[in-house]
Design a binder for these strands. Structure first.
Lengths: 125, 125
DNA sequence: CGGTATCCCACAAGATACTG
DNA sequence: CAGTATCTTGTGGGATACCG
């Protein structure tokens, strides 16, 4: 259910809600993987290279993920008017910050993997 | 699509994959909210109280969220054999650690909310 | 009280084909 | 090359009703 019926389209007034929304997007299946490929590139990188770098993603889904990263300010999109077309994506400062803040969490989760495995084994019932 | 056809049910062999899977679950719409209510309780808390504490959640979805938190070792479930039934949930050490590691990320995102808003306003095209 | 059982829908994501 | 268009499907989540 939408919370703010009075707001046009997708505007989110509350900062907390906006932050949750953005993190929710980032938590999606592909965003972080794409972001990491952009980070590893250490500079502008073409659509096809990103496509190669993210295992299992399709062009359609990659396009959507990149658009959303661009929308939230985590990546830039630069189109070069040439044939064949060239489009390059790059991580922004904000995107780098995001990665830096997500990293400790994923590291912790990886360290704790054994505990997760044990908990899941204990469960089942 | 399942990635590991050779594995029974839902087993995940790789630690990194398991960590991603767990974080993926946590990133779901309700898990963090539920976790926070358990944390605020500072002790065992009944199903109904959790239901009250998480705004907008339904009993079915809360049950699913709690089961998953229990499965991954973030919460415990204790049933008291009495009428009417009483079931209490509590945060585990692992659950507390999770919250402590997620918190910096959400704080950062809230601090950066203005940037997200600006980026989204800039976008649209 | 603390759930299940059903039914339903929205939406993310996949497959495939096509285009500027 | 870097996308769109279209169709399909899986799954999270919602509404409601019922049960031990």
């Amino acid at each position: 259910m939408a919370h703010a019926l009075s707001l046009a389209q997708n505007e989110i007034a509350d900062d907390d809600a906006l932050a949750r929304d953005v993190l929710g997007q980032v938590a999606g299946r592909w965003s972080l993987g794409v972001l990491c490929v952009l980070a590893e590139a250490k500079g502008p990188i073409r659509f096809s290279r990103v496509l190669d770098g993210v295992d299992g993603i399709t062009a359609k889904v990659l396009t959507q993920a990149l658009r959303q990263l661009e929308r939230d300010g985590f990546a830039t999109r630069t189109i070069y008017a040439q044939v064949p077309p060239r489009v390059e994506y790059a991580l922004t400062e904000l995107g780098l910050e995001l990665i830096e803040h997500v990293d400790p969490l994923t590291r912790w989760a990886t360290r704790r993997a054994k505990d997760f495995r044990a908990a899941r084994a204990r469960f089942v019932r």
